[in-house]
Design a protein around this nucleic acid. Structure first.
Length: 746
DNA sequence: TGGCCGTGACTTTTT
DNA sequence: GTCACGGCCA
């Protein structure tokens, strides 16, 4: 280890901030420091290490294991967990203090959407003007800042925020009735629990005397409050991160947490790790050249001693097919040189780009995997099966129950369901409870009552198995529900290949249940001191809860498995923290990287630049950047503009290859920025835009919602407008690209 | 009640 | 290209 690494890894007490550039060995430092603490006699159960993905947590656990001498095999109680899993666990343990039942559901985006739709109905907000997505993002932003519905309502002053507050309140009501939380709630409710409950707080403070946080630049305010609440008692907070790799600002991450760490924790030991052990010289220099264009940044030099290596290759291709073929060709060439497939990755800004790449890799006979851990669980058949399991685990989860009550079709159609829902509302019952008294529901025919009765019968039978079983029965139980619910038969019956695939997926879910291991902390029962408690065998109910929770909290990155002999395809976001010999980044075009949605502000553009930086620095020895002169976007062939980031890469580290034929990219440039060309449907020229949205116009933006135009100013061939959005603030938008709509009545 | 078909709206990144 | 929804018919 280098002296700075050594200093960081052997730090014992007090706050520490490790500014770790890409490839500077930060995982190494964290794992060594944990091992150091344990070797120095700190009991393992006093250490808490928090990460963002399960994969990172798992790797950290393994590497700590490998570092510890055999004589220290007892690491009982050491908690290495993701933030979200840690919070979920706290909420289950202290459920009674937060007004939840321990079997609460964790809603994913789809569940949130249906809950919000219902909330908009309840709040009498027309979903034409108030889309579930925009409401959810407003709610999510509020929660990340630790504002719950009441607080938000108190602060709501204008029409827009008051409407959001109504939706927010209705949405919270639904979650509460369904004994459910969303992702943001895991953090929000834990933070509030720690703030308002001194006993729980001091319990956690007493237990976790040493707190470590990885990827600290991506923490949001809620996460800061949680970590601070635990660490404030002793100040032993050790954080590792890199402001230049902050790429989750859109999700509420607050770079301020890392930039202002030393102010919040006086006496912080700050150690910058600038030496890169991963990449060769040209790659480091090119990436550094790029990131230096960011203004809001702590200056920090990155250097390598691995020699110059190969220059970064920049390839101009004709279209996305051609680009994908170049990628496949580069992969083949690297493989021929002896590089293993698992040491190669293809990175893109948006998932939609993976398709062409898959086609061309498949065509070339190159094995590949797509890093989308969430994709499997998002499949219809899997969501259905999980719907059953969730409804069984948490019988008041109406969102889950209504999803599956008539899948497969069992004569409980929309009319019946409406009637039962009305009954539930009147009697203040959950949907499940209302189904149980179907006989008393007004307007239900004998046939419907009978169908409902049959369903309720199966449901209760499963439920009693669940309540009486134990851990080992989990896979059998999952299989039983899949079979007896008729899900399996439904897909088998369809007879086509699709149906067989779905059955195979359902079987894979059973395998996942069989391979599922209860987290060690969970088995130890309490959070008190390490020894003395012999683990009781978890009940089937507890096992199912833990299984469902682990599924709810999977990330795309968890699916990255470099032990497979395959090239990995993934988004730039999912690539963070990983490294490969060969990295191909595709689609370096304006609108893609930087993404079109980021053209609206300096902060957003800088985040895109950091994203590009993260991608480039994944590469150890070969970095290929490419772009296509034209690309098919939703069926339409479109000319592209090279990414403005390309001009920021120092030329001496590049090797440019022009396979697009003409070499006329630059000449096309002026045409592309002509708004008439970019948006042919709108016509009328830029003057038209400016006159259509004079200052004072009330407008709607697809992302920011309702706002008022403050001023218009010409900007070359286009016009930029300052628009103040309710509850969001003022944004500078290019009228020609911002897809603004006038709101009637203004 | 259930399944089929057409339309149209929307496409960033994710714990 | 993709999904979600509404309308229509058996």
């Amino acid at each position: 280890m280098t002296p700075p690494q050594q200093a960081a890894a052997s730090h014992l007490d007090g706050p520490a901030l490790i500014l770790a550039g890409p490839g500077s060995g930060k995982t190494r430092v964290i794992t060594r420091r944990v091992a150091w603490l344990l070797v120095n006699g700190i009991p393992s159960w006093q250490v808490l290490a928090l990460t963002f993905t399960n994969k990172a947590a798992g790797e950290m656990r393994e590497r700590i294991d490998a570092l510890l001498p055999d004589s220290m095999s007892n690491r009982r109680g050491l908690v290495v967990s993701t933030f979200h899993a840690f919070c979920a666990r706290q909420l289950r343990t202290h459920a009674e203090h937060v007004g939840l039942e321990p079997g609460f559901s964790i809603y994913d985006t789809a569940d949130q959407r249906s809950a919000m739709k219902e909330a908009l109905n309840l709040a009498n907000l027309d979903s034409g003007n108030w889309t579930p997505a925009s409401m959810l993002s407003a709610v999510s932003n509020a929660k990340n800042e630790l504002k719950n519905a009441e607080l938000f309502e108190q602060e709501a002053s204008d029409f827009y925020t008051r409407s959001v507050a109504r939706a927010f309140r209705a949405y919270e009501g639904i979650l509460q009735r369904n004994n459910a939380v969303d992702f943001d709630d895991l953090l929000l409710r834990t933070a509030n629990l720690l703030r308002t409950n001194p006993e729980v707080r001091s319990q956690l403070q007493d237990r976790f005397r040493y707190v470590l946080i990885d990827e600290y630049q991506d923490t949001n305010h809620a996460q800061f409050v949680i970590a601070d609440a635990i660490a404030s008692a002793h100040g032993n907070l050790f954080v590792v991160g890199d402001p230049d790799q902050s790429i989750y600002g859109w999700r509420g991450a607050d770079v301020g947490n890392i930039l202002e760490f030393e102010e919040k924790y006086p006496g912080t030991l700050i150690i910058p790790l600038g030496r890169n052990f991963r990449s060769t010289g040209h790659i480091v220099a090119a990436a550094s050249g790029l990131i230096q264009n960011n203004r809001r940044r702590k200056h920090k030099d990155l250097h390598t001693e691995l020699g110059d290596g190969e220059p970064v290759r920049l390839c101009y291709c004709q279209d996305e097919r051609h680009e994908a073929e170049q990628v496949a060709e580069a992969v083949r060439a690297a493989a021929a040189r002896g590089v293993e497939y698992r040491e190669m990755a293809v990175l893109y800004r948006v998932n939609a780009l993976s398709r062409v790449l898959e086609d061309s890799l498949r065509g070339a006979g190159i094995p590949y995997v797509i890093a989308r851990g969430t994709a499997f669980f998002a499949r219809k058949e899997i969501k259905d099966a999980l719907g059953y399991l969730r409804a069984l685990s948490n019988p008041v989860d109406d969102v889950a129950l209504s999803r599956i009550v008539n899948v497969p079709a069992r004569q409980i159609g929309s009319r019946t369901l409406k009637a039962v829902e009305r009954h539930a509302l009147h009697r203040n019952l959950s949907l499940g409870a209302a189904l149980e008294e179907a006989g008393e529901v007004e307007g239900l025919g004998a046939r419907a009552v009978k169908s409902v009765g049959a369903f309720v019968g199966s449901f209760q039978r499963w439920r009693s198995i669940l309540l009486n079983g134990h851990l080992a029965q989990l896979p059998g139980f999952v299989a039983q529900v899949i079979t007896e619910s008729g899900l399996e038969a439904m897909h088998l019956g369809s007879g086509d290949e699709d149906g067989l695939d779905r059955v195979a997926n359902l079987n894979e879910l059973v395998s996942a249940a069989a391979e599922f291991e209860m987290p060690a902390e969970e088995r130890e029962g309490g959070d008190a001191d390490g020894d003395s408690m012999e683990a009781a065998v978890p009940s089937l109910e507890e096992a199912l809860r833990a299984f469902l929770e682990s599924i709810a909290l999977v990330s795309d990155q968890d699916a990255v498995d470099q032990s497979q002999g395959a090239v990995t395809l993934m988004t730039l976001h999912a690539a963070k923290g990983l490294e490969f010999e060969l990295v191909s980044m595709v689609g370096l075009e304006e609108g893609l990287l930087p993404h079109a949605r980021s053209h609206e502000g300096e902060h957003e553009l800088e985040e895109e630049r950091r994203l590009c930086y993260v991608g480039m620095t994944r590469s150890k020895s070969a970095l290929h950047l490419s772009l296509a002169a034209s690309r098919t976007i939703r069926g339409q062939r479109t000319r592209t503009v090279p990414s403005s980031f390309l001009g920021e890469l120092p030329e001496e580290h590049l090797e440019v290859e022009r396979l697009d034929g003409s070499g006329e990219f630059e000449d096309d440039y002026s045409i592309e920025y002509d708004p008439e060309f970019a948006e042919p449907s709108r016509g009328g020229g830029s003057g038209g835009f400016a006159s259509r949205f004079p200052a004072g116009t009330v407008v709607r933006h697809p992302q920011f919602g309702i706002g008022t135009v403050q001023s218009i100013s010409p900007r070359g061939t286009v016009s930029s407008a300052r628009v103040s959005f309710h509850g969001i603030g003022t944004k500078t938008l290019i009228l020609e690209y911002a897809r603004l709509e006038r709101v009637h009545g203004s």
